Amino acid sequence: MPGVAHAREIVVDERRDTVWATAFGSGSVVAFDSRTYREVGRVTVEGAGPTGLAVDERTGTVLASDFTNDRLIQVSPGSAVPRFVPAGDGPLSVSFSANGRTACTAGQGAGTVSVVDLRKGVVTRSIPTGEGAKSVAADSRSGRVLAVNRLADSVSVVDPRAGTVVETVATEALPNHVHLTQDGMAYVLDKSASGPAGEDRITRIRLGSP
């Protein structure tokens, strides 16, 4: 897909056959038709550094974490004018809650997960997880959030409603990203070449029942 300077992350809106991408280098959030690969939308914010990305497929709303300005860029369907919502310190990643009313961000600067009330446009909780918090993913079954702590070599399981860490799981060195499946399996990419042959590794974590 051309025209995405320093592409950082993508998400797919399957209901609308749309692929969204963050272009960190140009401060843009870009949409493409997943069938034709044609660009169908672009929102550019001067001085922004969009990194993480999430989509609410029920509404078509897209959130991009603006690492440079400690905020979220919210793009609503049919609008070229974004809304800005405060986030944590150095938000690299963002995830919607199951009901779409809140979002969680991984704040690399503070080592926290921030819970954001999207309707009010405020941070309601800031939960310490570990140094270098880099990636978040929400479990739609339980509402809990996994946060990868890159410099702490761990993954935190967070209860965003209570504002607590309920479990911490050790990983290989320098975990970088977490992906959650619908059946409660989490896959954490450890980008440290810490395997026996100097390769990167994947840590698999099964979450408990909601």
Rank of each mutant, 00 (worst) to 15 (best):
V45I: 13
S26R: 02
D89K: 12
G130T: 00
V188Q: 04
A21L: 01
G143Q: 03
G195L: 01
M1P: 09
K191Y: 08
V166W: 11
V122F: 04
S126C: 05
F84T: 05
G88S: 14
G47A: 05
I10R: 01
I10L: 14
I127C: 02
R35E: 10
H179I: 08
G41L: 04
A106W: 04
E57K: 08
L92K: 15
A5M: 13
I202A: 01
V62T: 05
A186Y: 02
V165W: 07
D139L: 02
V30I: 15
G27W: 10
P77E: 06
A197Y: 15
A197W: 15
D117I: 08
S140F: 14
Y187L: 06
E167A: 13
R141P: 06
A23N: 11
A173G: 02
R38M: 04
T164S: 13
V158N: 12
A186S: 01
C104Y: 12
D70F: 11
I127E: 07
N99F: 10
D159M: 06
T36Q: 01
A48D: 07
R83A: 12
G47N: 11
N176E: 15
T112Y: 02
S126N: 10
V81N: 07
P91G: 01
T105I: 00
Y37Q: 10
A31W: 14
V30D: 05
S140K: 08
K120T: 00
G27K: 09
E39C: 06
T102R: 15
F24H: 11
A133S: 10
H177Y: 14
S154A: 08
L72Y: 08
A7C: 12
V188Y: 11
D190N: 15
G47M: 11
R15H: 11
M185C: 03
L63N: 05
R204G: 04
A7G: 14
R204H: 07
L189G: 09
R119I: 06
R119N: 05
R83G: 06
D56T: 04
D89W: 15
N69T: 09
D70T: 00
S154R: 06
L174W: 15
L92S: 12
F84Y: 13
A173Y: 13
S156K: 04
V122L: 12
R150F: 00
V94D: 04
W20N: 02
E131M: 03
M185L: 09
A98N: 09
H179R: 15
G195A: 00
G41N: 08
E9T: 08
S154Q: 06
E14C: 00
M1Y: 15
V45G: 02
Q74N: 00
L63E: 12
L53V: 02
V30H: 09
A170W: 08
E9K: 15
I10A: 05
P50M: 04
V30W: 13
D200C: 07
A80Y: 14
L53D: 07
S154M: 01
S192L: 00
K120V: 00
V11D: 05
G132F: 00
V123P: 06
S140G: 10
S142G: 11
V30R: 07
R58C: 07
S154F: 05
P210I: 08
A23H: 13
L118Y: 03
A98V: 15
E14K: 10
T18S: 07
G184I: 07
N69Y: 12
T102F: 14
A7N: 14
A162T: 08
H177T: 10
S194R: 09
R161V: 09
E172A: 06
